[in-house]
């Protein structure tokens, strides 16, 4: 490996790397977000208590069957194959001409959705039954209990798994080069098509991938800690009552001093 080649490659092709990394991040972020929303929705629907009788029971059963099929199919096939089938299939069968970028986001979203659906369902099932019962006992509907009590806890609990999906998406968007999405892998390959320095150029790409995943992991840790709130609570006392004369004096001095 020659350092000079690396430096030269960076100096010459940095706009291409940057655009590639940007596209990769863009697809991963949007895909993870939409996928998480899909996963949340499906997770919630799949944990609705099935009524004992009535047509509602059958409607719910049909919906659940369809959702299970979706989850199984997308978890059971490689994303690179899904990309080919959806991108070319939609063109041939339905005459829909997606841009590669749109197709990329679409594929990453529904793929992530399938994984997140299972993660969310697990998250909901693992919440203590008492949380539901206390919500119902206070008069909440199932939906109210979900929105106000269960889901906030589920989202906190699945945040590490979501972060994991995000990191996987940053790496796996590289397979979208098969449908010509101009993400980082595609750009890197294009550069090597010009300079033929495979090792050095892909080495740069791997460093960029690593920086992206590492940064994302750190940011998510930070968010987790933020959500957890402070380790200790402060006793809420009526401050006017506990103020000592010295405190009052100091406060008064400061006020005058500010003028």
């Amino acid at each position: 490996m020659e350092l000079s080649v690396i430096v030269k490659t960076i100096l010459k092709y940095w706009p291409m790397f940057l655009r590639g990394a940007g596209t990769t991040l863009f697809i991963s972020i949007i895909g993870t977000l939409i996928g998480s929303i899909i996963g949340l929705l499906i997770g919630v629907i799949r944990t609705i208590p099935v009524p004992e009788k009535g047509i509602k029971k059958y409607i719910l059963k049909v919906i659940n069957a369809i959702l299970s099929a979706y989850v199984e199919v997308f978890r059971g096939t490689p994303m690179i194959v899904q990309a080919m089938v959806i991108y070319y299939g939609s063109k041939q069968a339905f005459d829909i001409d997606m841009t590669p970028l749109f197709a990329g986001i679409f594929i990453v979203s529904i793929n992530t959705g399938a994984y997140m659906a299972e993660i969310v369902r697990g998250g909901i099932v693992s919440i203590d039954k008492g949380q539901f019962e206390a919500s119902y006992a206070i008069g909440m509907s199932h939906l109210q209990a979900m929105l106000n009590v269960i889901l906030p806890q589920v989202i906190r609990n699945i945040l590490p798994a979501t972060g994991n999906e995000f990191v996987i998406n940053i790496k796996d968007t590289s397979v979208l080069n098969v449908i010509a999405v101009t993400e980082l892998f595609f750009q890197t390959k294009s550069i090597t098509g010009i300079n033929f320095k495979y090792f050095e150029t892909f080495f740069i790409a791997s460093v960029i991938y690593f920086v992206m995943t590492f940064t994302v992991t750190r940011i998510l840790r930070f968010i987790e800690r933020k959500i957890d709130g402070p380790e200790n609570y402060i006793l809420y006392a009526n401050q006017m009552q506990v103020e000592t004369p010295e405190d009052a004096l100091r406060r008064e001095r400061k006020r005058i001093g500010n003028y």
Partner: peptide, 30 residues
């Protein structure tokens, strides 16, 4: 159910709310 207040053996406080939130969320939402 809103006419009946229930106290459980295992407390079942809403883990995602603080003490005040636990006492407010039902009033506001229900």
């Amino acid at each position: 159910r809103t006419k009946l207040g229930m106290v459980f053996q295992q407390f079942n406080l809403f883990n995602n709310h603080d003490v005040l939130g636990n006492c407010m969320v039902g009033q506001i939402k229900v």
